[in-house]
Amino acid sequence: MYNAISVQDLTKHYDNVIALNHISFEVEKGQIFGFLGPNGAGKSTTVRILTGLIKPDGGKAFVMGFDILKNPIEAKQHIGVVPEVSNAYVDLTAWENIILIGKLYGMPPQKLKENATNLLKEFGLYEVKDRLVKGFSKGMKQRLLLCMALVNDPELLFLDEPTSGLDVESARLLREKITQYNKDGKTIFISTHNMDEANQLCHRIAIINHGKIAAVDTPENLRAQSMELQYIEVAFNKNINLQEFSKNPSITKAVSKGNKVYIYTADPPTVIEFLVEYAKENNLRIFSLNTMMPSLEDVFIKLISSKEAIIQ
């Protein structure tokens, strides 16, 4: 059994920019794999290599068991793609667009018509199927692109920032569909810079920055790995001097904002005991005390910048 995607040591330069710097990862079949990174991280470059559009300078990649460098056409036969920068033909109707794509996969006409009809119905475009795409809204165009990517019933779907620029409702609908298609057995590779999206959708997430993979794991594990990013939010009845806190070895950093103190620690129970003790000694009352888990965003920022940046 092979993985849906296997990437080994991919490298890509553009003139003097290193777009990808020796990246490696695996995507198992049946997963939704998130590729999370800021602008210019190398997400689209990765997608373009994995979908056979550009050649890497070094490394290997296998897509559905096919070497994408040696057998790009065979590999592409098994996948569906919605590129980041793409559009349907605005001078054709929705129906003509989807049929065109099906024919490019060499689909038999009967099966193609059947799939096209079902998809257009499912994505709420059947009523407008004979209208030129020119008049479609951005959300409709994106739904059509997804229909076009799904028409060949692909085992693996690549989506490069599929929800960027969509309104909340369209984005939600798209995410629902992605989850549903994944439940039907499709593997999905989705690139995004939206933390919530990755958190909600993905089984595994790779965090990429400056062409390097900073981490690959489940959203839960990524959070757990960054336990020092946990913090305790505490409010006393008086303003206090933070000097004493920084002496405590369990506390990474303490800052006060308004009437609250934020205490970063990898070991919340010890710090809570310390805080209670401290309040007693100094005749303070604790109004509120919360232990906050790091959000995926915290982890992300930690991984793509230095650790200090977030704690400050």
Partner: peptide, 9 residues
Amino acid sequence: TLEMLLSRP
């Protein structure tokens, strides 16, 4: 539309 087309087999 070019990238959309090139992504096909």
